[in-house]
Nucleic acid binder design. Structure first.
Lengths: 335, 335
DNA sequence: ACTCCCTATCGAAGCGCTTCGACAGACTAT
DNA sequence: ATAGTCTGTCGAAGCGCTTCGATAGGGAGT
């Protein structure tokens, strides 16, 4: 392992000079700088992360806490995680992957040990038990998601309330008066995940404003669960002509079932999905959808975090404005 | 930040004693141990990761390099990543998330800086450019996937050759003589990803042995691409009665298209998928499939890595034996 | 020629921990 | 009793880096 001292000796300067060349915190003459850089290259020097962290109290690591559950909106999570990792690298940070498993303890551990300089939390519940810990520490953090109380926190999220409203508006504008919502799995609501509840909120209040009838049913992903849910919906509200789907893994089953029952999309019924664009365009019907901007959320979260670490930036809630893209799955209500 | 020294003072012992209590590397009297543990709890002490890494030359971090591409078998990747993270934690390791973006440089950086003690590489190509670096370092590593040359490497993977063979066997046994393979996206073959080529290998050689005709077509995911591919296949080989699908995101589109064309599964055509069980059971037809044991692969990789770090374990290739589960998508060839 | 101020560099301290060797005291073996 | 052996604890060195204060030398200003 090549050390700073060896580089210094090789370049004929002191260790501190090499350090300053690396960090740029003091001015160095061009000739010296070049000599040092040359030595670094020749020796293949890489600064030791531990020593750096110890001396500077900065690890240059961002912790990312992803949900343990692998049964939920997986592609979105993955996309966010990758966006976080690549964005972090462009700012000189690496990413430590924590699973929700440890829960609040992970926050304590990371904060206490100086393993990471900051953290990003995903899958935030409305009243998340990790939040008090975050508030009680001076370690910067950003949430992807929106808890009930955001005081003292920085959050990045799609505006799911507006998303819900947007879906209803679109369908209402096309004349639909009876709308069914295929929600996330029951467990998602039970643990009060912010995005699911907010979407529902937006859907409901806009429906009421527009005088549209709304039926919400949670739904596990998959074909069988969707079949049961759809049957129940059509049983309770036979006049349903519009669907809003939030659970990605219910999208394709729903389309298949509707087809099977002879209900044409979009001639007989309209379907709006809340999902990444890729899912919307790859479905068997090109779906009118509100995109979940996973990449942007991940990138944004990192940038806000880096700003905080640099002493810029402050606590604030960033709600990304949803955009609805009309594709081939929605149309006017049948005469 | 509470330090070791403060704990020592609080407990009335020396710093080294506290250290030994923590590491258990020397015997400590019960009374002293308890007093120290008490102090640790009272003060809320967490050892500083950087200092530890510096002093012990061990970071207790495992680097996980995931592919940058988010367009391929995402659920499998995610599941592996989560399995890696949770398994690593049970052995006292944290996981650093690297994306493929940096390529070989990431290997150099991590190895050189001592950021991680070991690494796990996913999405290995047959002739991966990171391999020479791994061979040239004494840092332990495990590949999830199988390159062409495995000398000096430890690999964990599903035996995709056997997987391919198994799929053909199953269909052949049911009487199918004309089998079409829906492969991964063309790009996957172009960069010579091990698992895709090996599967194809297994499919082809077993088909030849059994005298079965095999047609392989790469396919991007999604409905449109699948429609084109299917049309081409049925055009070239109208008598095709068996399908093997490797691209997860082509599964549901294929089923929908077959249904749409009036080809019943499994009465008219049989479909075998290579995918996680969850996908197989949630599809519109419960799919006969060979499972991709993502969790097991992740766990296994970590355990092998930890064994290496502990000085046990050696280079070897672990090929997990594939298992085919018969569900509702395959049946005897129609009379 | 003198001070004053930069700029470029160096030396040394110290970050918080691990680990090695030393050693006091309690036991066992002779 | 004496030497030998453990067991439990301590002190100190050192891991590789950052950073602070000091300093030498070169210009600019007077």
């Amino acid at each position: 392992m090549v050390t700073l001292a060896e580089v210094a000796q090789h370049a004929g300067v002191s260790a501190s000079t090499v350090s300053y060349v690396l960090s740029g915190k003091r001015s160095i003459s061009t000739t010296t700088r070049q000599r040092v850089e040359q030595s670094i290259r020749e020796l293949g020097y890489h600064p030791n992360a531990g020593a750096r962290a110890l001396a500077s109290s900065r690890s240059n690591i961002i912790a990312l806490m992803v949900p343990l559950r692998t049964d939920m909106y997986v592609p979105v999570m993955m996309e966010i995680a990758i966006a976080v990792a690549t964005t972090a690298r462009t700012h000189g940070y690496d990413v430590l992957l924590l699973t929700g498993e440890e829960g609040p303890d992970a926050v304590r551990r990371v904060t206490g040990s100086g393993l990471a300089d900051a953290m990003i939390l995903m899958d935030v519940e409305l009243d998340d038990e990790r939040l008090p810990l975050l508030r009680g520490t001076d370690q910067p953090s950003v949430l992807i998601g929106l808890p009930a109380d955001t005081t003292g926190l920085t959050c990045v999220d799609l505006d799911f309330r507006a998303t819900g409203a947007l879906c209803v508006e679109h369908l209402a504008m096309l004349g639909h008066r009876d709308i069914a919502v295929i929600g996330e799995a029951p467990a998602v609501y039970e643990r009060h995940t912010g995005f699911a509840e907010r979407t529902l909120d937006g859907l409901r209040s806009r429906a009421q404003e527009l005088g549209v009838r709304l039926l919400h049913r949670p739904c596990e992903g998959g074909y069988d669960a969707m079949a049961v849910t759809l049957a129940r919906i059509l049983d309770e509200r036979p006049g349903t002509t519009g669907f809003v789907v939030q659970n990605e893994s219910a999208v394709e089953p729903l389309l298949a079932l509707l087809r099977q029952q002879g209900r044409a999309v979009p001639e007989d019924v309209s379907v709006v999905a809340i999902c990444p664009d890729q899912v919307a365009t790859q479905a068997s019907v090109r779906l009118t959808s509100v995109a979940i901007p996973a990449q942007e959320m991940g990138r944004n979260a990192v940038e806000r975090l880096v700003a905080k670490l640099d002493g810029r930036g402050s606590d604030e809630v960033v709600l990304i404005t949803p955009e609805l893209t009309v594709r081939a799955s929605t149309g006017p209500v049948p005469a």
